[in-house]
């Protein structure tokens, strides 16, 4: 019990005193996951719209694969990127393993199926009707696409929030490809694992609290989107 109470007060002190290391870890987490979602957004949202609105061979199979990949175990994404980036791997010459960039790549892999899948589901039923309506009112292709994005903004917003939530809370991928290097690739989840193992409960709890708060904010956002 002492562990917990001491840890808890220690954690509060770390948070309130603006501990450099803790905030560095939180900052890196936020940035890596944010960059991953933004990069993924640029191709995943259009891809979700295209798959959602068009008929093509094996469409059902493609959608099924995307839905399955939405639950891809993060370690698998980590493993794939690790193998690609490791010294002897095909992209080894980039020397990117154990960098924040590598973590971004792994997280892009992880969040893309979610962004594609949720966007797709939101666009599937109404996309064509929106497009037709836009066309009959003289919109060109770009304008029609923009209209679809605007009309489906809640689904797309939800897909981004869900993707971000997944990225920031996973351990497996960032641990493997980032290496949990202090001051370089250590993020919230990997820090919690490490500090707990080492018995530094102050830090573990401090970061845990922040992650929990963030998780709540994201979920409230998500529910707002989906309720709208």
């Amino acid at each position: 019990m002492d562990n917990i109470t001491n840890g808890f007060f220690g954690a509060l002190e770390l948070i309130l005193s603006g501990n450099r290391e803790v905030y560095g870890i939180i900052g890196l987490s936020l940035v890596v996951s944010f960059v991953s979602v933004i990069i993924s957004m640029f191709f995943s949202v259009p891809l979700g719209i295209v798959i959602g609105m068009n008929r093509f061979p094996f469409r059902k199979a493609v959608i099924m694969i995307i839905n399955t990949l939405m639950g891809l175990p993060p370690v698998i994404a980590g493993l794939v990127v690790y193998l690609l980036l490791s010294r002897s791997g095909p992209l080894g010459y980039l020397r990117m393993l154990h960098t924040p960039q590598a973590m971004v790549i792994a997280q892009v892999l992880l969040v893309s199926p979610i962004i594609i899948g949720v966007t797709l589901a939101g666009v599937k039923d109404r996309g064509n009707l929106i497009q037709k309506t836009a066309f009959t009112l003289g919109a060109n292709r770009c304008q029609a696409l923009w209209t679809i994005i605007k009309e489906c903004r809640t689904s797309i917003g939800a897909s981004l929030v869900a993707g971000y939530g997944r990225a920031i809370s996973e351990v497996g991928a960032v641990m493997l490809v980032g290496g949990n290097i202090k001051g370089h690739t250590r993020v919230m989840t990997t820090a919690i694992v490490l500090e707990t193992n080492m018995g530094n409960f102050d830090q573990a709890i401090a970061i845990g609290i922040v992650l929990l708060v963030l998780f709540f904010i994201l979920n409230i956002l998500l529910q707002k989107y989906q309720g709208a």
Partner: peptide, 20 residues
């Protein structure tokens, strides 16, 4: 069954004009 854009009546009527 017309699809009305999720915005005001004004913006719905203005849609085609804005596209032009």
């Amino acid at each position: 069954h017309p699809y009305l854009f999720n915005t005001t009546v004004f913006s719905n009527i203005a849609y085609g004009l804005r596209c032009r």
